[in-house]
Write a protein that binds this DNA or RNA. Structure first.
Length: 485
RNA sequence: GGCCCGGUGGUCAAGCGGCUAAGACACCGCCCUUUCACGGCGGUAACACGGGUUCGAUUCCCGUCCGGGUCACCA
C-alpha cells in the first residue's frame, strides 16, 4: 500500500476560511479521491503569536459543510499523528541538528535588531540576511551555545549552481541558488518555521502529492534542497493558479475582503449553498474534458484530472456563483428548499401560519440567493400600502375602471367556491375571463395586485390566493376594490 | 528592484501547426406567459504587440508590454 496517493490540507488556524484556501482543500481532496488516495488534514499552528480561539472549529465546520471529509486528522486520528504541528514540536529540532551535522544548516545568533538594521541600511528592496553566522568558528558556536545565547537555525544554501524542479501544472522550473536566502528552519522560540515543518511533516506523513497555491512556486527550490539534504524522495508538486478579485478601478489583485465576501462562512451567510460554492470554485482553475459545469462532489472526484488545471489566475465572479446557486436551488424539491431556507422564511413570515412548501414552490424558479427570500415574500405577512395606479397595466389591458369590475366579479366567483385550492381558484378565474370575454391577464392582473400590493411577485394570482387562504384573500380583494371606488 | 510564473470576448474557459476560434456567466433582442422569473431562439464581443521558425501560426522560439507571485524568527 506504499504507492497509494496521499494529499494533505494544511491550513493555519486564522479564524477565517478564504475561498482560495477552500479551493486548495477541494483540489487536494479531489486529487486524492480521483486516484483512490487518502486526504489528510493537518493543522499548522507554529505561529504562537497568531493563535485564534475557536479557529480550528471553523476549519472542521467548513470542511464538513463542503463535504470534504478527511481520512486522517486531529479529530479522527490516523497512523501518522499527531496532526497538529504544535503537538509535534519536538520532532523538528533533531532533524535540524541532523542538517547541521551534515553541514547543510547552521546556528545563527544574530538578533532581530541586527536583522532589522541590515534591512534598513540596504537600498536593495529584496536584500536579505548577510550570512554573518554562516561560517562562525566551531569553538565560537560552542561558546555561545554554552552561554545560552538565543539562536535560530538556518539552512545553508548553495552559493552557486541552479536548482530545478518539476511541477505537474507548470512544468520544469529552474532557479539560481544564489537567489536563495539562508532561510530560518528553527525559530528562537524553538518552533519550526512553516517551510521547515512542512517538509518534515509531509515526509513523515508520507505525503506523495504536495498541492498548494502558486504563491509557493518560488520557494519550492528551498524545499527541494531540504529534501535532497535529507536524502528524501521529492513529492509531486501541484501548484494551483491564484484566485483574483476585480477592484473598483478595474485592476485585478489577489482576492481579498475588499472584493466582497470571500470567506466560506460569509458566502453561506449570504445565502449561497455549500454545494454551489464547491461546484463553482472547482471550475475556477480547472476544466473537465467535456466542459460540463454542474457537478456533485462525487462527480467531481470521478472526473478530476490534474492536466485540466489551468496556469493563469482566475477572477472570482459573483455573477457566475449566483448562477450556480440558482441552478442548485432549482434542482431542489419544494420540501428541500423549504427546509434549507426556513430561517429566511421566518424572517418574513412571523405570525401567519402559511405553508412554507407552497411558498418554496413559487420561489424555487426565481431565487438565486437565499437572502433574497424575505424581501420577496414579505407581502404575505403584511400587505404593503400600495398605490391604486398599480392596477393600470397596458399589456394586460387593465385600467382603474375595468379593474374594479374584474375584482368585483372575481370576489363573487371566488366566494362561491366550495373548495379553496390551486386548481379550483385557477379554474374559477379562467372561466371568469372566458365568461367576461376578456384576456386572462385582464382578470389576473388586478387580482394579483390586490392580493399582493406589488407589481412584481413570486408566483401569479392563483398561487398567491392559494397560499394566502380564503379569508385573507377575499379580505385583500375587497380592500382593493374599495381602493378603486 | 532581483527572481519566478502567466497573457484567447467584461468574467470562467475549450483549443495543444491548418477550425467560419467551442461552450458557460453577464449583457442585448425576440418568443412563451396572469407580473417577475424559468424555459426556448437569436445577437454583440477575444487569440496583448513586434520579430522569427514553418508551405501555414492562437498554438513553437525570442523580445517588448501588461498582469500576478515572491524575496519575514507569517503561514
Amino acid at each position: 500500500m506504499s504507492d497509494i496517493i496521499r494529499t494533505r490540507f494544511a491550513p493555519s488556524p486564522t479564524g477565517f476560511m478564504h475561498v482560495g484556501n477552500l479551493r486548495t482543500a477541494l483540489y487536494e481532496y479531489l486529487i486524492a479521491k480521483s486516484m483512490g488516495g487518502t486526504f489528510v488534514l493537518r493543522i499548522e499552528d507554529t505561529d504562537q503569536e497568531r493563535k485564534v480561539e475557536g479557529a480550528v472549529d471553523i476549519i472542521y465546520n467548513t470542511l464538513r459543510k463542503a463535504g470534504l471529509q478527511h481520512d486522517e486528522g486531529p479529530d479522527i486520528g490516523g497512523e501518522y499523528g499527531p496532526y497538529v504541528q504544535s503537538e509535534r514540536k519536538n520532532m523538528y529540532l533533531p532533524y535540524a541538528k541532523q542538517l547541521i551535522d551534515n553541514d547543510k544548516a547552521y546556528y545563527c545568533f544574530c538578533t532581530k535588531e541586527r536583522l532589522d538594521m541590515l534591512r534598513e541600511n540596504s537600498d536593495e528592496p529584496g536584500a536579505g540576511y548577510d550570512r554573518h553566522c554562516r561560517d562562525l568558528p566551531k569553538e565560537e558556536v560552542e561558546r555561545l551555545l554554552a552561554e545560552g545565547t538565543p539562536y535560530v537555525i538556518r539552512q545553508k544554501m548553495p552559493l552557486s549552481g541552479t536548482t530545478t524542479f518539476e511541477d505537474a501544472v507548470f512544468g520544469s522550473i529552474s532557479v539560481e541558488n544564489a537567489e536563495l536566502q539562508d532561510q530560518i528552519l528553527i525559530k528562537a522560540d524553538g518552533y519550526p518555521t512553516y517551510n521547515f515543518a512542512n517538509v518534515i511533516d509531509d515526509h513523515t506523513m508520507n505525503i506523495t502529492h504536495v498541492v498548494r497555491g502558486c504563491e509557493y512556486l518560488s520557494s519550492t527550490p528551498k524545499y527541494n534542497l531540504l529534501y535532497e539534504a535529507f536524502g528524501w524522495e521529492i513529492p509531486t508538486y501541484i501548484h494551483l493558479p491564484l484566485i483574483m478579485g476585480k477592484n473598483d478601478d478595474g485592476t485585478i489583485s489577489k482576492l481579498s475582503k475588499r472584493h466582497g465576501a470571500t470567506g466560506f462562512e460569509d458566502l453561506v451567510a449570504q445565502g449561497y449553498l455549500p454545494e454551489a460554492i464547491v461546484n463553482y470554485i472547482a471550475l475556477l482553475g480547472w476544466c473537465p474534458k467535456d466542459n460540463r459545469e454542474i457537478f456533485t462532489l462525487q462527480e467531481l472526484a470521478e472526473n478530476f484530472s490534474v492536466d485540466g488545471i489551468s496556469k493563469s489566475p482566475a477572477v472570482f465572479d459573483y455573477n457566475k456563483l449566483e448562477w450556480f446557486n440558482g441552478e442548485y436551488i432549482k434542482a431542489m424539491t419544494d420540501e428541500q428548499l423549504a427546509e434549507v431556507a426556513e430561517p429566511y422564511f421566518r424572517q418574513a413570515i412571523k405570525t401567519k401560519p402559511l405553508d412554507f412548501v407552497k411558498i418554496a414552490a413559487i420561489l424555487r424558479q426565481r431565487t438565486t440567493v437565499l437572502s433574497q427570500i424575505p424581501e420577496k415574500i414579505a407581502f404575505f405577512e403584511e400587505q404593503p400600502d400600495y398605490d391604486k395606479e398599480l392596477f393600470v397595466n397596458k399589456k394586460s389591458k387593465t385600467n382603474l375602471e375595468n379593474s374594479a369590475v374584474m375584482l368585483k366579479e372575481a370576489i363573487s366567483a371566488l366566494q362561491a367556491l366550495s373548495e379553496w385550492n390551486h386548481d379550483t381558484i385557477h379554474d374559477c378565474l379562467m372561466e371568469l375571463a372566458a365568461h367576461l370575454e376578456v384576456k386572462n391577464g385582464t382578470v389576473m392582473w388586478p387580482v394579483r395586485i390586490a392580493a399582493s400590493g406589488m407589481t412584481v411577485t413570486p408566483g401569479g394570482a392563483v398561487e398567491i390566493l392559494d397560499i394566502l387562504g380564503r379569508e385573507e384573500s377575499l379580505d385583500r380583494l375587497n380592500k382593493g376594490l374599495a381602493k378603486l371606488s
